[in-house]
Design a protein around this nucleic acid. Structure first.
Length: 404
RNA sequence: GUGGGAUUAGCUCAGUUGGUUAGAGCACCAGAUUGUGGUCCUGGGGGUCAUGGGUUCAAUUCCCAUAUUCCACCCCA
């Protein structure tokens, strides 16, 4: 028997229904906010992710499905969705269309070569949105509100954490201050953090090591060192969230794992799903389009992890639907098919090919969750009729096959 | 990549201090005077006890390796 690869899962029955329900719900809401579907390739040049996600990130540093294709190209299975969408945006020259706004949603598989555990797979699926051309913090608010709408529609409780990562004006000064602070206490910081001081000092803030965290209580906080523009945006965002009754906490250590974020960063977390508690994350990335050779274009986006929320989605009740057709004698089986194709114009129909007793057919109708059980028995075959039972109302009647 | 737990029927799990035909519940199939379901009752089918080695007269049980999975670290959706 050949099994699926480690960290890769098949979804069937209830699980696949949950998956589809999440995606269709998210799509419905994204469309209400004016988003259009974008489909981009799963395979991209490795360079794309190195330049966008950042070489200092774990995702690029050690988790990529990277290989050389038969043409000698260095390629990667996408580890996240934003890079590909931005590449497509630039390639389609949408960055040249000044003052136009573009809003895209996508969903599909992402690949990271990690050790699997609950809520962490090697092939997993994200639903995401990217909004291009809108620099206003109102858009940051709107996108957070949209995610809130999606989780509400799915019956999922969450906590929202926000932070500001500053911009090219305030971040470099802050970064230097932080490096100075970290260098002073570097002997007490963990091995990873010592490495981060030179590669990506902001990530030190996110370190899970308790000793590091205790040292960081006195560290300079970016939120206290924002430039006027970033500070105003942050204040405006919190004000908008409060007016909209969206609860949030400011997490000054929320830095996001990907290098391209600036200004607003946010994360939705659930306490119901174990250690991998982030269910959606995103933020503003005003420099990424430029970074990928486009004209400077402000952008903000997010992704939510479909597998992460599959277990906590409240599924709508499934009602009995359609028809189950069966016969009690071999000679009557053929008569089922014209009836089935007629009914299928408007209904879900399942046909049993083996003759069975009435009781077995009723059970069969229950099993496929049909609303109606329709059976041709000895009498019905003789009279050209069909017996129909409404399994919800428990009403039954016999009618001519021609009016079925 | 590091550390720890797990793997027995389709599913959830017992069990064998190493011994001949490995159990339960659910699910499935079939009966219950032959045409009335989702609840009862009776019966039935279904397992290379994860895979590959090793120890032993004998391994599902002990040992090793591999795979998968779960938990933690790490990281992130």
């Amino acid at each position: 028997m050949i099994n699926a690869l480690r960290g890769m899962k098949d979804l069937t029955f209830e699980e696949s229904q949950r998956f589809v329900h999440i995606v269709t719900t998210a799509i419905g809401i994204a469309k209400k906010y004016g988003y259009n579907y974008i489909e981009t390739p799963i395979l991209e040049e490795t360079k794309l992710f190195k330049r966008s996600v950042g070489e200092s990130s774990d995702i690029v540093g050690k988790e990529m499905y990277q290989f050389e294709d038969k043409g000698g190209n260095d390629v990667c299975m996408r580890p996240e969705g934003t890079a590909g969408v931005v590449r497509a945006f630039v390639q389609a020259k949408l960055d040249r269309r000044q003052n136009e706004k573009f809003k895209f949603y996508y969903y599909g598989p992402m690949f990271r070569y990690e050790r699997p555990q609950k809520g962490r797979l090697r092939e997993f699926h994200q639903f995401g949105c990217e909004s291009f051309g809108e620099a206003s913090v109102y858009e940051d608010f709107t996108i957070i509100q949209m995610i809130g709408d999606i989780f509400s529609a799915l019956g999922i409780g969450y906590k929202l954490e926000i932070n500001s990562l500053g911009c090219t004006e305030c971040m470099p000064t802050y970064r230097q201050n932080l490096v100075n602070f970290l260098t002073e206490c570097q002997d007490d910081l963990c091995e990873d953090c010592n490495r981060r001081i030179s590669t990506n000092p902001i990530r030190v803030l996110d370190c899970k090591n308790e000793k590091c965290q205790s040292l960081l209580t006195d560290s300079p906080k970016l939120i206290d060192n924002l430039c006027d523009s970033c500070d105003n945006d942050m204040k405006k965002l919190t004000q908008l969230l409060e007016t909209a009754n969206i609860d949030y906490t400011i997490n000054t250590n929320l830095v996001r794992g990907l290098d391209y974020y600036n200004k607003t960063a946010f994360e939705f977390v659930s306490s119901e799903i174990g250690a991998q508690s982030a269910i959606a994350g995103g933020g503003r990335y005003d420099k990424l389009v430029e970074f990928l050779d486009g004209k400077a274009t402000p952008a903000v986006g997010f992704a939510l992890g479909i597998e992460r929320i599959m277990g906590i989605v409240k599924m709508p009740e499934v009602n009995r639907e359609g028809y189950y057709l069966g016969a009690m004698d071999q000679e009557a089986i053929d008569a089922l098919f014209p009836l089935a194709s007629k009914k299928r114009l408007t209904n879900k129909v399942e046909v049993e090919y083996e003759p069975k007793k009435l009781k077995a057919h009723l059970k069969g109708a229950d099993r496929v969750n049909a609303r109606y059980c329709a059976v041709i028995g000895e009498d019905e075959l003789k009279n050209g009729t069909i017996w129909v039972k409404d399994l919800v109302e428990k009403e039954e009647y016999t009618i001519s096959q021609s009016v079925f």
